[in-house]
Design a protein around this nucleic acid. Structure first.
Length: 454
DNA sequence: CCTCATGATTAATG
DNA sequence: CATTAATCATGAGG
């Protein structure tokens, strides 16, 4: 206690003497006696006064005096007191809304970047890189002609993103340490508490993270643009190959009475089509559940195709007549043989063509020459019609062909909105699966309609 | 350019 | 959930 006071006093004296500073105003020279409260107070008053007036002086003087003050024995105590005061006076508010309201916006961006494979694991890793890869390619590793371009661009984006991020991080750290050093240095002369430094660091980090968010935002935008450019199936519509449409059309016109392929049928068609061509559509993959998602894509492509086909066929049947003829004739050849055989087997006679179908939009004048007409329609473009068609489909085909010939013979060729078996007047295929719906001429009284389960 | 065909998407529907 | 109907966006030809 005493000693401290003494030293303090001495120092005060020294500093005063050394710099020959006279504050001018009511500064009282230190008194000689020590140990009294009065004296100590005066010493503190001196120091405070010096501090207060330090800004009035020239730089050199101030610098020198600061040094003096720094070495003052009393300094730590005074410093802490000042810090406390500062803390209390609310100069350091904002302590409240400090940490971790994890910005939902930022989280959204982060999630998206992660999902997009930008911020995730590096591609080289392979295993987990599947997140992006699988999501993009729908599980299968083929059809990557388009993707390679996309992928390269994505990696480009990712690289930029990472380098930028790194830069920001580095800059942030540098700046933070710099500020910290500065503050620490200042804290020797200025009342700056460690807590305050911490707070400052927090502020800096927040600033930088907001910059980071901008980076993430723009990266997200870039990825979105890239996606819409490359992966949006609408934008990258590829026409199916000739053979694929052929197969699909074949099926469609063969099952015109009920062109709703079952799941298995779809699958099979998909297989056939995508075997013929490797034009696996770039199904817009649903994000989420990025891993698994087996090859269900081609199947829904088939669904798309049939949906479109159905609606468009129904909408303008006239437009499709030619096509219908073609495909019907194509399959009709085999169908004809098969059915002919069936008919011959089941009952030796030509059926009597009751022709009392519910949708009596067509009636064939003479059933006798249907094979002839078919053959004439057939022409020469027949090759490799499918073999495993069931009888029902054959019947469909035959019916179609017959209806065509009928239409040509007696109706106005172009505009005939003839409703082919199963397509009722308002549109919409009613269930034509009951054999009685339409009586095909080839269909004997009670024979062939067997497997209608397609 | 424009037009048409066509695959995919979306809202509505049951 | 599967279909329908409408619509979008693109590819291929004129």
């Amino acid at each position: 206690m005493d000693e401290q006071a003494r030293i303090m006093q001495a120092l005060g004296g020294v500093s005063l003497a050394g710099h020959s500073v006279q504050g001018g105003m009511g500064l009282q020279p230190p008194h000689g006696h020590d140990g009294t409260d009065d004296g100590r107070k005066q010493d503190i008053g001196d120091i405070l006064h010096q501090i207060m007036t330090i800004t009035d002086q020239s730089l050199d003087e101030a610098q020198a005096k600061k040094h003096g003050l720094n070495c003052h024995r009393m300094k730590p105590a005074l410093f802490s007191v000042l810090c406390e005061i500062k803390e209390k006076t609310g100069l350091s508010i904002r302590g409240s809304q400090e940490e971790d309201p994890p910005d939902p916006q930022l989280m959204r961006l982060d999630n998206m970047l992660l999902a997009e494979g930008v911020s995730g694991p590096e591609k080289g890793g392979g295993s987990a890189a599947a997140a992006a890869a699988a999501a993009a390619s729908g599980g299968a590793s083929d059809n990557s002609i388009e993707h390679s371009d996309y992928r390269s661009k994505l990696t480009q984006i990712r690289q930029i993103y990472h380098t930028e991020l790194e830069k920001y991080e580095q800059a942030c750290n540098e700046f933070t340490t710099h500020v910290m050093n500065l503050l620490r240095e200042q804290s020797r002369t200025r009342p700056i508490s460690p807590k305050e430094i911490e707070r400052m660091v927090g502020i800096i980090h927040r600033k930088f993270s907001s910059i980071q968010m901008q980076l993430k935002q723009s990266t997200c935008e870039a990825v979105m643009i890239l996606r819409s450019r490359f992966l949006d199936a609408r934008r990258k519509r590829r026409n199916f190959s000739k053979q694929a449409t052929e197969i699909l059309n074949e099926y469609f016109y063969s099952h015109l009475s009920n062109p709703y392929p079952s799941e298995e049928a779809k699958e099979e068609l998909a297989k056939k089509c995508s075997i013929t061509v490797s034009q696996a559509a770039l199904q817009t993959d649903k994000r989420e559940s990025s891993e698994h998602m087996a090859d269900s894509a081609p199947q829904s492509v088939v669904s798309n195709w049939f949906g479109n086909k159905r609606i468009r066929y129904k909408k303008n049947i006239g437009k499709f007549q030619e096509e219908a003829n073609l495909y019907a004739a194509k399959t009709a050849v085999t169908a004809a043989h098969a059915v002919a055989a069936a008919v011959q087997n089941s009952q030796t006679n030509s059926p009597t063509t009751p022709n009392s179908g519910s949708s009596g939009s067509f009636n064939l004048p003479n059933s006798g020459d249907m094979f002839l007409s078919m053959q004439s329609l057939n022409g020469d473009s027949y090759q490799g019609a499918q073999v495993g068609v069931n009888v029902q489909s054959q019947v469909d085909t035959l019916r179609h062909v017959i209806s065509q010939t009928a239409g040509y013979s007696e109706a106005l060729g172009g505009n005939t909105m003839y409703s082919p078996n199963g397509l009722n007047a308002n549109g919409g295929w009613h269930d034509a699966m009951t054999p009685s719906s339409v009586i095909s001429p080839t269909e004997g009284p009670g024979s062939v309609h067997s497997d209608t389960s397609n």
